[in-house]
Design a protein around this nucleic acid. Structure first.
Lengths: 202, 202, 202, 202
DNA sequence: CATGAATGAGTTTTCATTCAT
DNA sequence: TATGAATGAAAACTCATTCAT
């Protein structure tokens, strides 16, 4: 068994362990020892590769954002129209969430951490601007005069629904959340009121 | 000067200090010593009155919810119509926030704490149900078939906008937030798209 | 037993324990736990009162210098002439050392620490200037043209002899050291060569 | 390129790196990793060649002493008279220091380390005895009855001036130090007070 | 010959909590 | 009612050292 090239493997394992541990505990009050144990290494190794707990967190945040961004980008590629792009963003947001439930809790703590760590604040800012910009571009074609307020509304509603998920509401809220958002979009863009679960792109 | 009857005074001071300290620090990583210092007492006294740090937090959460609930109840009293009740809830939410900016940060941490403390989860549940129920009653009169989804959407948007505030976006976002919400409500209830009363489109 | 007013007692005990521990170990590689154990308290208490290890060290250095300065000042009060003042400084330096052997090792480490801690460098600078100035004043009366070089020479010889002591040479080196220094002074000030152990002030 | 015969090269590089690192840091609080990094090798290799950190230090001390001894021996070879031998020792001491400023800090830490490591104490003892003996031999010719005390005095003054240098006094103290020592020697050996040859009186 | 990987043991520091007064 | 004194437990972080390759 070669022992070379472990660094990327360990880093990935530690990032993953961090996200899982935050998800399991429901807060950032996670010790490096816990993270390391879950990753199957010593806490000294975690420090060896990341330098500090803060940087382990930062790497984890970056990882979550990267995955989320990739998921949204992938969904946007398929979207044939502005309207479809909006729906794609919404669906991608909650699909990502359902697929990786452990990310939800981390997400919420992301907001908290941003108040303390400039690096986290920067990452959160990137997410916000990207989401806002994607939505705004799409709405700008369909409802130019209201693009701003709608983009802000949809983004806020996404975050709000994430909060509900993070605080542990059970059931298939993923579908509920998507319905709620699509209904909002339909109100904004359609002449006739939208009927949830029927007019949406399958 | 008699030293009797200090208990309620001390408790109030400690609760207030807790909220301010959480707001100032931007997280729940607040020590009992910090809280006690801000309240002008010893940390031993904080334990004497509350028993544990967890209970200090719980009392603070309860306090925030109580104030919020009072503010909403007050606003509802004046509202002559279901539509007005919805607006009242929205305005009250963000007025409370602007009036006591230190509560915002505490609010966000409320969500995090709920994952760990059953007592906090219970309190958060009460808030959710009360908000949902208030909105649902109002929407039920105006748009019975969509009351559910709309109540959920408005509640989520409120929370999402709170998140943005908590993460430190500057400017007069209070007004922006209210506009965004009222625009959503107008879409849902009016025939013609609603023009927010403060010209926020832009 | 009253438990009030312990702070000065604990601080003194910790300072004393620090000096003893450095003396016993022969280096600054002393843990807070060791210091606290010798002082009969928990290491948490040491931090409670001093804030950090560095400040424990600084207080100890300050203490040593204060004692040394007092001893010199006391000796100078009795000295009737400039020549007697020089001898007083020399005797006081090595009397202080013999009286408190544990201070010697700390003294040497003082020099090392000065390279790292600005506060220690400041304290060491005060010692240097004071010693130099005391010697210079006395020599200025007796040998104005050579006061500078002699003050520097005597000060250096004192420090050098301290180093020897610190590195653990045994025997009654205190007397030897005083003789060596007084011989140097006699060479500088007397017409006839000085005979050690005879012409010195008893 | 053959990889044979690397051992002496690596050892030398590590010894040099150790001295530089101690000089740069101003203390023995130097990690093996830092030393190895400066030497351009892995810390594992440092252990491979030296066995332990203590032995790396010991080798470095030995190296400094060897260089110093060589410098003094070289100077003594040229000295035509006992008086010249004394001056040679003095000049060589401070020339070595000026030439390799990084050695000064290491020198001071040498004294500290001697309290802990028997090997270092042994090396320091050798230095002391050699210096003392060299000086004593020279003084024995010129002032037999005072050879002891003068050898001790000069040796101590050298060490004391080293301390001052180590604690970071700036300026051309090397010349100042030599003047101070030569003035002492002149007092001891000349009938008339000696005027240092660089006009240091001021 | 040389190193990346890995860790155990130990260090400073923090903090909720208890207790005697 | 109120507090200063005190600590146990645990946290982040460091580092000399070992080992498989």
């Amino acid at each position: 068994m070669p022992k070379l090239g472990m660094e990327p493997i360990r880093r990935a394992a530690l990032v993953s362990a961090t996200i899982h541990e935050i998800g399991a505990q429901g807060s950032m009050d996670v010790t490096v020892a816990q993270i390391a144990r879950r990753a199957g290494v010593s806490s000294a190794l975690a420090h060896h590769y990341f330098g500090s707990k803060e940087q382990i967190f930062a790497a984890s945040m970056r990882h979550i954002l990267t995955l989320y961004a990739a998921q949204v980008r992938g969904a946007l590629l398929m979207a044939p129209s502005p309207r479809a792009r909006i729906e794609a963003i919404i669906r991608a947001s909650f699909t990502a969430m359902s697929t990786r439930p452990e990310h939800i809790s981390a997400w919420l703590n992301f907001y908290v951490q941003a108040r303390r760590s400039p690096e986290t604040a920067r990452l959160l800012g990137i997410y916000h601007r990207r989401l806002q910009s994607n939505l705004h571009h799409a709405f700008a074609v369909l409802a130019p005069s209201r693009a701003d307020i709608l983009a802000r509304g949809v983004a806020a509603m996404i975050d709000g629904l994430y909060c509900r998920h993070a605080s542990g509401a059970g059931g298939d809220i993923s579908a509920h959340s998507i319905d709620t958002l699509l209904h909002y979009v339909a109100l904004a863009l359609d002449d006739a009121p939208h009927i949830p679960n029927q007019g949406a792109i399958a």
